[in-house]
Design a protein around this nucleic acid. Structure first.
Length: 479
RNA sequence: UGGGAGGUCGUCUAACGGUAGGACGGCGGACUCUGGAUCCGCUGGUGGAGGUUCGAGUCCUCCCCUCCCAGCCA
């Protein structure tokens, strides 16, 4: 058995969306599981739509996810002579031919088929041109495409590792184009030449290409090349079951990254779209995926991605990440919110992250939850105001809290909690009557880390100052 | 119109022809401050109709639904 060689071959015409990332990941897992090679190829023969920016984004997204490639990126646009060489071989052997049909002629065939209720197909009009006719057309400066001569009888069978044998009747194919009139290859042709020359053993890709596969097999056969194994993984669909597109909200790896998802969480989640470890445990790290991944256990169903489940998984990773690593990950989000500049107190941020991580599910949420440690509290949550700051005794309670806190030394979560509980007893009130207004005063919010954690992190001075400010607010509100 | 693939709780995914289970979500409860964290409980499914079989999510037939391909895009 030769070495496993698989490839991921994105077209640089858009972002790396989660469906593509999932396909790349399955290829990568398969390569790593089998001690083989993962090759990155770039299908950039659509010269009009391919962009450098898109290419960069895809590479960056793969790197960020940790999907490293062993060879490449190999650009199709730099291999045009290879495709032309193989096309000429087919021409010389009479297995392909020039077609001079104009776009208008092709359109006419399409309309005729529609009128007769047939599927649109090329009629084979140029299939049997004489050498003289061909030369005459060329002399006139007409630019032909090259079409493969497709056998008109028999079946082509795709032996799919995931789905089993899939049969196609050759009569359903026309003589499809392999080289365009601009002398660039079509997708099906370039793919065959590349996969052969790169020694690809398994073509693992999305199911949308299953219907293209018999055409590729016909090309392999015409060229006399050995056919790789195919595995078509199911589509990842949008929540409305259509193909992923921007109207569905975040779909790309970059967008999820910008929303504060961790690469490990995304990798864990997208692995579950069509596969699962034997023990059924859904949180696992990538080494376990590498150890257990096989194509035979890949599901055939289309999958609809679920942002809520991804978010739940992300929360798990946030709670269990190495604290320093998590702090480093949060810092760009703090900067994006202008909460910190270049000279920040790393240890202080780390302490807050540690307090905040238990209750948040994305890095954006964490940064948001940290804002009141860095900026002044100028607003209070409206529902909190109504619920806690309109009570008759709240001002007296908060004034007494200030007096009490001024005496607390050292000022940490234990001493503040002890002082607060003692105050609750003295005043003969419920804990809530003291704790809730305090939380709102010092954070502006009704939820968050433990109250005494917040106090310790803010420090004595700011805690007291904010409570006093809230007292002012309440008194003004009462006028 | 032709060809191809699929169909298990709302979503993802398990189940040698032999007990339909897990997770997320939703609902409820517990947490001597919150709850948008955590823990516990509940809820909820084999698209439909036949057939084969002692026994069908699983095998067969028909119907229905969804997706993909039929671009000189990939």
């Amino acid at each position: 058995m030769s070495e496993v060689r698989v490839r991921f071959a994105p077209s640089p015409t858009g972002s790396l969306h989660i469906g593509g990332a999932r396909t790349a990941l399955f290829n990568w897992l398969f390569a790593r599981h089998n001690g083989g090679k993962f090759i990155l190829r770039v299908d950039d023969t659509d010269l009009q739509r391919s962009t450098e920016e898109s290419m960069k984004g895809i590479l960056e997204g793969l790197r960020w996810l940790g999907i490293d490639w062993d060879e490449g990126p190999i650009y199709q646009s730099q291999r045009i002579e290879e495709y032309r060489k193989f096309a000429n071989k087919l021409l010389e052997e009479g297995k392909a031919y020039y077609c001079f049909c104009t776009k208008e002629e092709l359109e006419e065939m399409r309309k005729q088929a529609e009128k007769e209720g047939r599927p649109p197909m090329y009629t084979g009009k140029c299939r049997n041109l004489t050498k003289e006719q061909i030369e005459e057309h060329l002399r006139q400066g007409r630019k032909p495409v090259i079409r493969l001569k497709v056998p008109q009888q028999g079946k082509t069978v795709v032996h799919d590792v995931i789905r089993g044998d899939v049969e196609f009747d050759n009569s359903t194919f026309d003589d499809f184009i392999i080289m365009k009139s601009d002398n660039m290859p079509t997708y099906n042709f370039a793919t065959v030449v590349d996969d052969y020359q790169m020694g690809i053993t398994h073509v693992i890709r999305a199911e949308e290409h299953l219907s293209n596969t018999p055409k590729q097999i016909l090309i392999y056969e015409a060229l006399g090349l050995e056919i790789p194994q195919f595995a078509h993984v199911s589509m990842v669909l949008a929540p409305d079951r259509s193909k992923l597109s921007k109207r569905h909200g975040a779909t790309s790896v970059q967008e999820f990254r910008d929303q504060g998802y961790l690469p490990e969480a995304i990798v864990n989640y997208i692995t579950l779209l069509g596969w699962m470890p034997k023990d059924g445990e859904e949180i696992f790290d990538v080494s376990k995926g590498i150890k257990e991944f096989t194509l035979e256990r890949v599901s055939k169903n289309p999958a609809i991605y679920d942002v809520q489940k991804l978010t739940w998984i992300n929360g798990h990773y946030i709670r269990n990440y190495d604290l320093d690593k998590l702090t480093e990950a949060v810092i760009p989000f703090l900067k994006a919110k202008n909460l910190i500049r270049e000279d920040f107190d790393y240890d202080y941020i780390k302490k807050i992250v540690s307090a905040v991580r238990e209750r948040e599910k994305t890095l954006v949420d964490i940064a948001d939850a940290m804002s009141y440690y860095f900026t002044e509290v100028n607003e209070y949550e409206e529902k909190g105001v109504k619920k806690y700051l309109t009570k008759e005794k709240v001002v007296d309670i908060l004034k007494k809290a200030v007096v009490t806190l001024k005496e607390v030394e050292p000022f940490n979560k234990f001493t503040t909690e002890e002082a607060y509980r003692k105050l609750v007893e003295e005043l003969q009130i419920s804990s809530g009557e003291l704790f809730h207004p305090t939380r709102l005063a010092i954070s502006g919010r009704t939820f968050g880390p433990g109250l005494f954690d917040i106090m310790e992190l803010l420090g004595k001075e700011r805690t007291i100052e904010r409570i006093e400010k809230a007292i002012d607010f309440i008194e003004k509100m009462r006028k």
